[in-house]
Design a protein around this nucleic acid. Structure first.
Lengths: 251, 251
DNA sequence: TTAGTTCAGGTCATCATGACTGTAACTCTT
DNA sequence: AAGAGTTACAGTCATGATGACCTGAACTAA
């Protein structure tokens, strides 16, 4: 034992009265049809801070962790309070615990990211304190929330390239072009329609319904269905911990 | 504003006296030459619990988060106290926050995983309260630490297949066979020597020194050097947070 | 000298991918 | 009604990565 842990003994009393606070923040992603092209674009809701620090800056929805709920539940509740919707996907992102993240009391934030499918009403219903922003062009946010959003975006794009999260952003039936548009919106680049189609049709977890999508200004595309299991965050609702840190002294 | 957050007002006082405790636990991996074959095998150090709950069970090294250090620093210090070594690699794994992880007070554990290169002395120097175990055959650990170890192992193997962490477990100069043995030890399967060589030699970040490793019972292999940058955990020492959860009320 | 070992460089078939072409099927315009 | 415009759908071709396998080189040990 090095004694390092108590090297700032003068602060111990103050620390015990003010332990690090635990908060949950969530990056919420949703697709919204572009006004011009009609193709989906990635958006996220932010909340306006009504107190110092960073008063009137935009920030991620979040709040303190209450004793009664798990981390995942806290994130889901927060999300529901912000968007009024149940998340299609929710995954833990990272625990941010730098010493000076927040002026004043130290705060450790456990960040989550989520996918939602907002109704038209939920997207339109903005207040002065909650607003939707395009994920790709964000202004300066409160605290380090820009970094959190960028990390979440990176994770989302990663999962999109070799995963099945795209189907969390689609309905039960969809055309292959709609799937491609989801990919293009998230990855922010055009994909070759023919090659994309080849990959999806090689996937046995996607099967064609007999139906076709009518109403377009061109040849009606087939409607498909995703038959595989949709992934969920594996690591939650775990039970364990270790508090007797002193037993960890070196052999 | 829903007021949901304070819907259990009766418990607020109790909660404020016992907020969720924050702890850091670390899964520490090291390679150790097999007694029989001499090839490296994956090991990790565990500590014996000296108190209830799970008294006399083996557990991950860890301890409470003090006010004065970042999450990463807390993990690094803990690791140093356990193995006596400086980590070659340290990365945040996951925040475990289930309601009943620990009997009694609620605890949220932020888990890290690390790679170390222990000296012979550090590996041999076991006490009654700290012991090295093979990563692939673990007994039942305290709390949910088996799941944490398994998750860390999964992450390690993932990073090994498409990353550069292997070089954190090697010295400055190494033979290609030694790199392959590291991969085989972590992934727990044999790799084709010729194909493995082809991949590594195609990597421009690996260059041959002029030297050869002498002393083997066969043709002396070349010694190589890794010239690329070794990855570190990107997301640490961040500064931000959001406490005013009430601003997150739905529009 | 010979056997045993690993090192090192190579071939071959297979598969995934990006770039690209052509035809089918529908709507809209004139 | 004919043609233009658009997308759906099916296919080709070259390329690169990969797994399986082969051969000779260079060293040690018997």
């Amino acid at each position: 034992m090095t004694g390092f842990m108590f090297s700032e003994a003068a602060n111990v009393t103050e620390r015990r009265q003010q332990p690090p606070a635990l908060a949950i923040s969530t990056v919420i992603f949703a697709l919204r049809p572009s006004a011009s092209s009609g193709r989906p674009v990635l958006w996220l809701p932010l909340v306006r801070r009504i107190r110092e620090p960073f008063r009137d800056h935009w920030a991620l929805p979040g709040g303190p962790l209450t004793q009664a709920e798990s981390l995942q539940d806290a994130a889901a509740r927060n999300l529901q309070e912000t968007t009024g919707l149940v998340p299609k996907y929710l995954e833990q992102l990272y625990a941010f615990g730098g010493l000076h993240r927040s002026p004043g009391q130290r705060v450790v934030s456990i960040a989550y990211w989520a996918l939602v499918q907002p109704t038209e009403a939920a997207l339109a219903e903005e207040s002065i304190n909650v607003k939707w922003f395009r994920a790709d062009k964000l202004q300066q946010l409160a605290f380090d929330h820009n970094e959190i959003v960028n990390y979440a975006l990176w994770r989302l794009r990663n999962k999109m390239t070799y995963g099945t999260i795209a189907y969390h952003l689609l309905g039960e039936k969809f055309t292959l072009a709609q799937v491609r548009e989801v990919y293009e919106a998230v990855l922010d680049r055009a994909l070759d329609p023919a090659n994309f189609r080849r990959q999806l049709t090689a996937d046995r977890q996607i099967e064609a319904t007999g139906e076709y999508l009518q109403g377009g200004k061109h040849r009606p595309p087939r409607l498909y269905r995703y038959t595989g299991a949709l992934a969920a965050d594996k690591y939650d609702n775990f039970d364990d911990d270790d508090l007797d840190g002193k037993a960890a002294a070196v052999p």
